Amino acid sequence: MRNVLGRLVTDLSKKLSVHAVAALLLLSAAASAYSAPKTVLVLGDSLSAEYGLARGAGWVALAEQKLKDEKIDAAIVNASVSGETTSGGRTRLPALLDKYKPAVVVIELGANDGLRGLPVNAAQANLRAMSETAAKAGAKVMLIGMRIPPNYGRDYSDKFFAMYGTLSKEFNAPLVPFMLDGVADKTQLFQADRLHPLAQAHPTILANIWPVLQKTIKTK
Protein backbone atom coordinates (compact mmCIF):
# COMPACT_ATOMS: atom_id res chain seq x y z
CA MET A 1 0.00 0.00 0.00
CA ARG A 2 2.84 2.34 0.90
CA ASN A 3 4.46 1.73 -2.53
CA VAL A 4 1.19 2.42 -4.34
CA LEU A 5 0.73 5.70 -2.47
CA GLY A 6 4.32 6.62 -3.26
CA ARG A 7 3.80 6.05 -6.97
CA LEU A 8 0.58 8.11 -6.91
CA VAL A 9 2.37 11.00 -5.26
CA THR A 10 5.23 10.80 -7.79
CA ASP A 11 2.84 10.67 -10.77
CA LEU A 12 0.86 13.62 -9.41
CA SER A 13 4.04 15.63 -8.93
CA LYS A 14 5.10 14.94 -12.51
CA LYS A 15 1.69 15.99 -13.85
CA LEU A 16 1.77 19.14 -11.81
CA SER A 17 5.24 19.93 -13.12
CA VAL A 18 4.11 19.44 -16.72
CA HIS A 19 1.11 21.67 -16.14
CA ALA A 20 3.27 24.27 -14.42
CA VAL A 21 5.72 24.31 -17.34
CA ALA A 22 2.84 24.57 -19.81
CA ALA A 23 1.39 27.47 -17.86
CA LEU A 24 4.74 29.24 -17.82
CA LEU A 25 5.11 28.77 -21.58
CA LEU A 26 1.66 30.22 -22.18
CA LEU A 27 2.42 33.18 -19.95
CA SER A 28 5.71 33.72 -21.75
CA ALA A 29 4.01 33.64 -25.15
CA ALA A 30 1.34 36.07 -23.97
CA ALA A 31 3.97 38.41 -22.57
CA SER A 32 5.90 38.33 -25.85
CA ALA A 33 2.76 39.09 -27.85
CA TYR A 34 1.86 41.93 -25.51
CA SER A 35 5.33 43.44 -25.68
CA ALA A 36 5.55 43.28 -29.48
CA PRO A 37 5.37 46.78 -30.98
CA LYS A 38 2.10 47.75 -32.59
CA THR A 39 2.23 48.37 -36.32
CA VAL A 40 0.63 51.54 -37.63
CA LEU A 41 -0.08 51.48 -41.36
CA VAL A 42 -0.35 54.88 -43.04
CA LEU A 43 -2.20 54.72 -46.34
CA GLY A 44 -1.96 58.13 -47.94
CA ASP A 45 -1.07 60.20 -50.97
CA SER A 46 1.72 62.69 -51.72
CA LEU A 47 0.96 64.66 -48.56
CA SER A 48 2.17 61.67 -46.57
CA ALA A 49 4.69 60.31 -49.10
CA GLU A 50 7.15 63.21 -48.69
CA TYR A 51 6.62 64.51 -52.23
CA GLY A 52 9.30 67.11 -53.01
CA LEU A 53 10.89 66.72 -49.59
CA ALA A 54 14.12 65.25 -48.29
CA ARG A 55 13.58 61.79 -46.80
CA GLY A 56 12.67 62.04 -43.15
CA ALA A 57 11.17 65.54 -43.41
CA GLY A 58 7.49 64.60 -43.75
CA TRP A 59 4.93 64.29 -40.98
CA VAL A 60 5.04 60.46 -40.97
CA ALA A 61 8.78 60.41 -40.31
CA LEU A 62 8.33 63.08 -37.66
CA ALA A 63 5.63 60.92 -36.05
CA GLU A 64 8.01 57.95 -36.00
CA GLN A 65 10.57 60.02 -34.15
CA LYS A 66 7.94 61.26 -31.70
CA LEU A 67 6.93 57.67 -30.93
CA LYS A 68 10.55 56.95 -30.05
CA ASP A 69 10.91 60.13 -27.99
CA GLU A 70 7.80 59.33 -25.98
CA LYS A 71 8.73 55.64 -25.71
CA ILE A 72 5.49 54.46 -27.30
CA ASP A 73 5.96 50.88 -28.47
CA ALA A 74 4.74 51.24 -32.04
CA ALA A 75 6.26 51.19 -35.51
CA ILE A 76 4.95 53.01 -38.57
CA VAL A 77 4.77 51.53 -42.07
CA ASN A 78 4.33 54.33 -44.57
CA ALA A 79 2.50 52.87 -47.56
CA SER A 80 1.64 56.26 -49.04
CA VAL A 81 1.98 56.83 -52.79
CA SER A 82 2.04 60.17 -54.58
CA GLY A 83 -1.03 60.64 -56.76
CA GLU A 84 -3.00 57.97 -54.90
CA THR A 85 -6.80 58.12 -55.01
CA THR A 86 -9.33 56.41 -52.78
CA SER A 87 -9.81 53.82 -55.52
CA GLY A 88 -6.10 53.02 -55.57
CA GLY A 89 -5.95 52.78 -51.80
CA ARG A 90 -8.93 50.45 -51.77
CA THR A 91 -7.18 48.17 -54.27
CA ARG A 92 -3.88 48.10 -52.37
CA LEU A 93 -5.17 47.77 -48.82
CA PRO A 94 -5.94 44.01 -48.60
CA ALA A 95 -2.38 43.02 -49.52
CA LEU A 96 -0.95 45.55 -47.06
CA LEU A 97 -3.14 44.22 -44.26
CA ASP A 98 -2.07 40.68 -45.02
CA LYS A 99 1.61 41.63 -45.09
CA TYR A 100 1.89 43.93 -42.08
CA LYS A 101 -1.10 42.94 -39.89
CA PRO A 102 -1.38 46.45 -38.44
CA ALA A 103 -3.09 47.35 -35.19
CA VAL A 104 -3.98 50.77 -36.57
CA VAL A 105 -4.69 51.87 -40.15
CA VAL A 106 -4.43 55.62 -40.80
CA ILE A 107 -6.26 56.56 -44.01
CA GLU A 108 -5.17 59.87 -45.52
CA LEU A 109 -6.81 59.78 -48.92
CA GLY A 110 -9.31 61.78 -50.93
CA ALA A 111 -7.41 64.92 -51.91
CA ASN A 112 -6.67 63.65 -55.42
CA ASP A 113 -10.29 62.59 -55.88
CA GLY A 114 -11.35 66.10 -54.93
CA LEU A 115 -8.79 67.88 -57.11
CA ARG A 116 -10.01 65.84 -60.08
CA GLY A 117 -13.63 66.50 -59.34
CA LEU A 118 -14.45 62.80 -58.97
CA PRO A 119 -17.87 62.00 -57.49
CA VAL A 120 -17.97 62.43 -53.72
CA ASN A 121 -20.23 59.39 -53.40
CA ALA A 122 -17.58 57.23 -55.10
CA ALA A 123 -14.80 58.52 -52.84
CA GLN A 124 -16.98 57.96 -49.78
CA ALA A 125 -17.80 54.41 -50.92
CA ASN A 126 -14.08 53.67 -51.33
CA LEU A 127 -13.22 55.07 -47.90
CA ARG A 128 -16.08 53.08 -46.40
CA ALA A 129 -14.86 49.88 -48.06
CA MET A 130 -11.32 50.49 -46.75
CA SER A 131 -12.62 51.12 -43.25
CA GLU A 132 -14.68 47.92 -43.35
CA THR A 133 -11.76 45.88 -44.68
CA ALA A 134 -9.37 47.19 -42.02
CA ALA A 135 -11.90 46.61 -39.25
CA LYS A 136 -12.51 43.03 -40.38
CA ALA A 137 -8.75 42.48 -40.20
CA GLY A 138 -8.81 43.59 -36.56
CA ALA A 139 -7.28 47.03 -37.10
CA LYS A 140 -8.47 50.30 -35.63
CA VAL A 141 -9.21 52.84 -38.36
CA MET A 142 -8.18 56.48 -38.08
CA LEU A 143 -9.22 59.02 -40.71
CA ILE A 144 -7.40 62.16 -41.80
CA GLY A 145 -9.69 64.67 -43.45
CA MET A 146 -9.06 67.21 -46.16
CA ARG A 147 -10.62 70.39 -47.49
CA ILE A 148 -10.43 71.37 -51.14
CA PRO A 149 -10.84 74.75 -52.88
CA PRO A 150 -14.34 75.50 -54.25
CA ASN A 151 -13.20 74.97 -57.85
CA TYR A 152 -16.14 72.65 -58.51
CA GLY A 153 -18.61 74.72 -56.52
CA ARG A 154 -19.29 75.22 -52.85
CA ASP A 155 -21.75 72.33 -52.70
CA TYR A 156 -19.12 69.87 -53.95
CA SER A 157 -16.41 71.07 -51.55
CA ASP A 158 -18.81 71.04 -48.59
CA LYS A 159 -19.98 67.49 -49.34
CA PHE A 160 -16.36 66.42 -49.80
CA PHE A 161 -15.32 67.72 -46.39
CA ALA A 162 -18.42 66.34 -44.70
CA MET A 163 -17.82 62.77 -45.88
CA TYR A 164 -14.95 62.34 -43.41
CA GLY A 165 -17.14 63.26 -40.46
CA THR A 166 -19.87 60.95 -41.70
CA LEU A 167 -17.51 57.98 -41.95
CA SER A 168 -15.91 58.80 -38.60
CA LYS A 169 -19.29 58.48 -36.91
CA GLU A 170 -20.24 55.41 -38.91
CA PHE A 171 -17.14 53.47 -37.89
CA ASN A 172 -16.44 55.18 -34.57
CA ALA A 173 -13.11 56.09 -36.15
CA PRO A 174 -10.90 58.82 -34.67
CA LEU A 175 -10.75 61.78 -37.06
CA VAL A 176 -8.35 64.61 -37.83
CA PRO A 177 -10.82 66.99 -39.51
CA PHE A 178 -8.28 68.88 -41.64
CA MET A 179 -4.63 67.91 -41.77
CA LEU A 180 -3.55 71.26 -43.27
CA ASP A 181 -5.13 73.39 -40.57
CA GLY A 182 -2.78 76.32 -39.93
CA VAL A 183 -0.95 75.63 -43.19
CA ALA A 184 -3.46 75.91 -46.04
CA ASP A 185 -3.86 79.67 -45.69
CA LYS A 186 -0.11 80.38 -45.70
CA THR A 187 1.21 80.40 -49.28
CA GLN A 188 4.79 80.76 -48.02
CA LEU A 189 4.56 77.23 -46.58
CA PHE A 190 3.99 75.60 -49.97
CA GLN A 191 6.21 74.37 -52.75
CA ALA A 192 6.09 76.09 -56.15
CA ASP A 193 3.11 73.95 -57.24
CA ARG A 194 0.99 75.51 -54.46
CA LEU A 195 -0.27 72.03 -53.59
CA HIS A 196 2.45 70.39 -51.50
CA PRO A 197 3.67 71.85 -48.21
CA LEU A 198 7.33 72.59 -47.61
CA ALA A 199 9.28 70.72 -44.96
CA GLN A 200 8.82 73.55 -42.47
CA ALA A 201 5.05 73.05 -42.61
CA HIS A 202 5.17 69.39 -41.59
CA PRO A 203 5.70 69.98 -37.85
CA THR A 204 2.39 71.90 -37.91
CA ILE A 205 0.77 69.06 -39.85
CA LEU A 206 2.05 66.60 -37.25
CA ALA A 207 0.72 68.84 -34.48
CA ASN A 208 -2.73 68.49 -36.06
CA ILE A 209 -2.43 64.71 -36.34
CA TRP A 210 -0.42 63.67 -33.29
CA PRO A 211 -3.01 64.02 -30.48
CA VAL A 212 -5.45 61.78 -32.36
CA LEU A 213 -2.77 59.34 -33.48
CA GLN A 214 -1.27 59.01 -30.00
CA LYS A 215 -4.65 58.33 -28.41
CA THR A 216 -5.60 55.84 -31.13
CA ILE A 217 -2.39 53.85 -30.66
CA LYS A 218 -2.65 53.82 -26.87
CA THR A 219 -6.29 52.75 -26.83
CA LYS A 220 -5.97 49.98 -29.44
Rank of each mutant, 00 (worst) to 15 (best):
N3D: 15
L5Q: 13
V9C: 14
T10F: 15
L12W: 12
L16Y: 15
S17I: 10
A22R: 06
L24P: 10
L24G: 13
L26S: 11
S32T: 12
A33N: 11
K38S: 12
V40Q: 04
V42H: 00
V42N: 05
D45E: 08
S48M: 06
G58P: 01
A63S: 09
E70H: 11
V77G: 08
N78Y: 08
V81W: 07
S82F: 03
S82Y: 01
T85M: 05
T85H: 04
S87G: 13
S87H: 09
T91G: 12
R92T: 07
A95G: 09
A95E: 10
L97K: 02
D98I: 14
Y100L: 13
K101N: 10
K101P: 02
P102Y: 01
V104E: 06
V105W: 01
A111T: 02
D113Y: 06
L115P: 02
R116F: 04
R116C: 06
G117M: 10
A125D: 08
M130V: 06
M130W: 00
A137I: 06
G138P: 03
M146W: 04
P150D: 08
Y152E: 05
D158C: 10
F160A: 04
F161A: 07
A162W: 11
T166F: 11
N172C: 12
P174E: 10
V176K: 01
P177D: 00
D181M: 04
G182Q: 04
D185N: 05
D185P: 05
K186S: 11
T187A: 14
A192N: 14
L198N: 09
A201R: 02
P203A: 07
A207H: 10
A207Q: 14
Q214Y: 13
T216R: 11
